[in-house]
Design a protein around this nucleic acid. Structure first.
Length: 273
DNA sequence: CGGTGGACCTGCTGGC
DNA sequence: TGCCAGCAGGTCCACC
């Protein structure tokens, strides 16, 4: 589900609710996520105060006063929501953190592809999931030459390269498709065959599209919601993703869908070469 | 090493 | 109406 813009929207929504709050208790209702939630996790969080909420790629980072970090990844269908304690529990609510103001932070994830761990802040960037991540697209070092260093030596399709978190951290299938439409490149184009100028354009378009999506609070199809359980708006601004058979917004052609690996690509056969 | 394809889960939709 | 195949925002691992 959530790519960088959705995760960033959730973080921005959680920050004012969580900052300065103390976690009173944590209940794990279903520990079987992508990896098992360690039994010691509730004890490591109890009575800890939240300093701030941050993000690395698609990971949500809740920094605690004792210099540990509660890390979440939402997988495909995860939600992290701040609610009133009176809100009825939903099916697939797997974790509930009660805060000192009586409100609750709930982790909900039907497909259970998500992740939740607590790590020492000093070891955060050494944890297996974060260690090999590439640059965040908003990092000042992320530019054309950086991306070109990857594209020039890769025979992969450009869509697959953009999904590789070791190259750019935070792009997922929706935004990979949207970015490539906006630079007129087919998702199936081999990375190493793209001219340097096109790679520069792609590198510039990545943060542009992601920023735009953040401005619209992310993309909601079925299950994505922000920290207050509200929909995003960017689905109204998609040019190709999930628009198979519909008219291109830039020319008279019809958007095509192609299964590529186990993720569909969407493109305009006229606008994208 | 690089690249591909399947596995992990549940739920929804569309075709028959 | 009911059933079943196909598909879904992501990662990780086995295999070539």
């Amino acid at each position: 589900m959530p790519e960088l813009p959705e995760v960033e929207t959730i973080c921005r929504g959680l920050q004012p609710h969580l900052q300065g709050r103390t976690i009173v208790r944590v209940d794990v209702l279903q520990p079987r996520l992508r990896s098992l939630v360690e039994p010691a996790l509730p004890g490591r969080l109890q009575d800890e105060t939240i300093v701030r909420v941050g993000r690395r790629a698609k990971y949500i980072l809740i920094f605690l006063a004792n210099k540990t970090v509660w890390v979440f990844h939402l997988g495909m269908s995860g939600k992290l929501i701040h609610v009133d304690a009176a809100t009825p529990l939903q099916k697939h609510d797997h974790m509930v953190a009660t805060l000192d103001n009586g409100r609750e932070l709930r982790y909900h994830d039907p497909r259970r592809f998500g992740l939740s761990v607590v790590v020492a802040e000093a070891r955060l960037h050494e944890m297996p999931q974060l260690r090999h991540l590439g640059l965040d697209p908003f990092d000042s070092r992320f530019d054309g030459p950086y991306l070109h260093a990857f594209t020039k030596r890769s025979a992969r399709r450009i869509r697959d390269l953009l999904l590789d978190q070791q190259v750019v951290a935070g792009v997922g299938n929706i935004y990979a498709n949207e970015i490539l439409f906006r630079v007129g490149v087919r998702p199936t184009h081999r990375a190493c065959r793209l001219p340097r100028g096109k790679v520069e354009q792609i590198a510039a378009m990545i943060p542009k599209v992601l920023r735009d999506a953040i401005r619209w609070c992310g993309t909601s199809f079925s299950d994505y919601r922000d920290a207050d359980d509200n929909f995003g708006e960017f689905q109204k601004r998609l040019r190709v993703y999930d628009r198979e058979g519909e008219k291109c917004r830039s020319c008279p052609s019809v958007i095509k869908r192609l299964p590529l690996g186990n993720r569909s690509v969407f493109y305009c056969p006229a606008c994208q070469v």
